[in-house]
C-alpha cells in the first residue's frame, strides 16, 4: 500500500484571500507587483537621466515630482499616493516572495549529492538573494538621497538640491561601489523577473514567447547600464558640483 494522504480540507475564505493563499495566486501577485516595481525603476531611471543636463534640470525634475498634479491637488499629494502604492506593491511582493521561498524550502526532500542543471539560470536561482540585496539597497538609498540621514547621506545634505546631494554622495568611493553592486543585483533580478512574469500571469503564446527573452534582456540592459553610469560618471569627474 502507498502512503501519501490527502491534505485536510480547511475552511474557505473569501476568494481574494483564498486566491492569495494559493502559491499560484501569490505568483500572480508577485508578477503584478513586479510590473509596478519595474515601471517605477524604468521611469526613475529615465528621470535620473536629467542629471546630465545639469543641476537646474534635475532639481526642477524633483520639484516637478512634488508638484505632480499641478494646482488641482494639494502639493506632493500625488507623489505620496505614488509612494504609498509603490510601498504597498513592494511589501506584497516581498511577502509573497518570502512565504513562497519557505513553501519551496519545505517541499524539498533533501538535496542531491550531484546535480547538473540544464535550463536553470544563475538569475533564476538567485531571485531571492538579488531581491533581498535590492531591498536593503532601497533603504540605504532612501536614507542617502531622500531623507538625508547620515552616515548614508553625504555630510552636507541640502533637501531639494538633488544634484549636489547625488554628486556629493557618489564622490564617496564605497558608496559608488555599493550602488554598482546593487544595480547589478537588480539587473539579475529583473532579467529573470521580466521573462518570468508573463508565465506567472498566464500570458504565453508561441509567437510572442520568442520575444520574451529579448524583452527581458533589453529592458535589463537599459536600466542597469544607465543606472551604473551615474556613480561612474561622478567618480571619473564627468559630473561635479
Amino acid at each position: 500500500m502507498t502512503t501519501t494522504e490527502e491534505a485536510p480540507t480547511r475552511r474557505r475564505y473569501p476568494w481574494p484571500i483564498e486566491f492569495y493563499r494559493s502559491a499560484v495566486g501569490k505568483k500572480w501577485v508577485m508578477a503584478l507587483t513586479g510590473v509596478a516595481l519595474l515601471g517605477f525603476i524604468a521611469s526613475h531611471m529615465i528621470g535620473n537621466l536629467k542629471v546630465y543636463f545639469g543641476p537646474e534640470d534635475i532639481n526642477h525634475y524633483g520639484e516637478a515630482l512634488r508638484d505632480l498634479g499641478g494646482d488641482l491637488v494639494p502639493r506632493t499629494s500625488l507623489l505620496w499616493a505614488l509612494r504609498i502604492g509603490l510601498l504597498g506593491a513592494a511589501l506584497l511582493h516581498v511577502h509573497a516572495a518570502y512565504t513562497l521561498t519557505y513553501t519551496n524550502w519545505k517541499a524539498r526532500g533533501g538535496r542531491y549529492r550531484e546535480r547538473d542543471y540544464v535550463a536553470v539560470t544563475y538569475a533564476s536561482r538567485t531571485m531571492r538573494f538579488t531581491g533581498t540585496v535590492v531591498l536593503f539597497f532601497i533603504f540605504f538609498h532612501l536614507a542617502d538621497l531622500t531623507w538625508g540621514t547620515a552616515p548614508a547621506s553625504p555630510d552636507e545634505f541640502f533637501r531639494g538640491d538633488v544634484y549636489s546631494n547625488l554628486v556629493a554622495s557618489f564622490e564617496r568611493l564605497p558608496v559608488a561601489i555599493l550602488y554598482i553592486i546593487a544595480n547589478l543585483a537588480l539587473g539579475l533580478h529583473i532579467y529573470h523577473g521580466t521573462w518570468s512574469l508573463f508565465q506567472s500571469l498566464g500570458y504565453s503564446h508561441p509567437r510572442f514567447n520568442a520575444w520574451r527573452k529579448g524583452l527581458a534582456a533589453g529592458l535589463t540592459a537599459a536600466i542597469v547600464l544607465v543606472n551604473l553610469s551615474f556613480p561612474i560618471a561622478v567618480q571619473v569627474g564627468i559630473l561635479e558640483i
Binding site: 501519501t4 490527502e6 491534505a7 494559493s22 502559491a23 499560484v24 501569490k26 505568483k27 513562497l100 513553501t103 519551496n104 519545505k106 517541499a107 524539498r108 542543471y117 540544464v118 535550463a119 536553470v120 533564476s124 536561482r125 531571485m127 529573470h192 521573462w195 518570468s196 508565465q199 506567472s200
Partner: peptide, 12 residues
C-alpha cells in the same frame, strides 16, 4: 500545492 512546492519558472 498540498504536496509540492511552487513554480518560479525555472523551466528545468
Amino acid at each position: 500545492e498540498s504536496f509540492f512546492g511552487s513554480c518560479t519558472n525555472h523551466a528545468e
